[in-house]
Design a protein around this nucleic acid. Structure first.
Lengths: 115, 115
DNA sequence: ACTGTATATACGCATAACCACATATATACA
DNA sequence: TGTATATATGTGGTTATGCGTATATACAGT
């Protein structure tokens, strides 16, 4: 009863939950984008992302001055499904955050790794 | 971002997660059954069940000397689905606990409320 | 080399979470 | 009423968690 419990502990914090849901929705986000979308200070965001990384929920890649976070490729299927359900539950606030993201100026460009 | 987060906080503890999954699987369990299945002391189980009740995840009903816990009837759909996925993730330990339940002696009889 | 931007992390502190143990309450039954 | 079983909860102590602030590191552009 420890895999799932660890997963839930990670999601049991507003910043981490919101980060996970946004990353899930947007595929990949850098710290400064999350800072903007969640409207929280950088140190807080970084710290929580670090935790998510340590727990194996996300992976990071550096590109220039930015560090981009995405869901860890080996996240089990049940974990993904739980994120999907959580997105349903939090659709409202997720929308607000996505809008803040959309109206953000100077978003870093990705080195289009994907297709 | 608070409904889901509260839910996850509740599941972010071994005793509470295991209790929720077992209750979900068995429909209704009393404290002493959970004590046996989880192999934990009564005080610990009771306290965590109290928390789950306060958070609206379970409801309780007294029958004689026993108090039976079941999932709260108004648990939203997404919450149920998350419990289902968690049961997949924790199938192994869930099985162990279910077996301990099965071999328990003197299990209290339910006043068959259902059908 | 210097400056600015992005990110990570160390530190000290405040509070929350959890536990074991003891005790209180509720019910059943003699 | 007295005893046994089941459950809930108060108390004190320990550990874990989260935060803000300050600082360190990494990279980009000059």
């Amino acid at each position: 009863m420890t895999r799932a419990r660890r997963f839930f502990s990670c999601l049991g914090d507003d910043v981490r939950l919101a980060s996970m849901l946004l990353i899930h929705a947007e595929k990949e986000l850098c710290v400064c984008e999350l800072v903007e979308a969640l409207n929280e200070n950088q140190s807080k965001i970084s710290r929580h992302l670090g935790q998510l990384r340590n727990c194996g929920l996300v992976k990071d890649r550096r590109q220039g001055q930015w560090v981009f976070y995405s869901l860890h490729p080996e996240l089990p299927d049940w974990a993904i499904k739980i994120l999907e359900q959580s997105s349903v539950a939090e659709a409202r606030s997720l929308k607000v955050m996505t809008q803040r993201l959309g109206s953000m100026r100077n978003r870093p460009e990705r080195a289009t790794v994907d297709a």
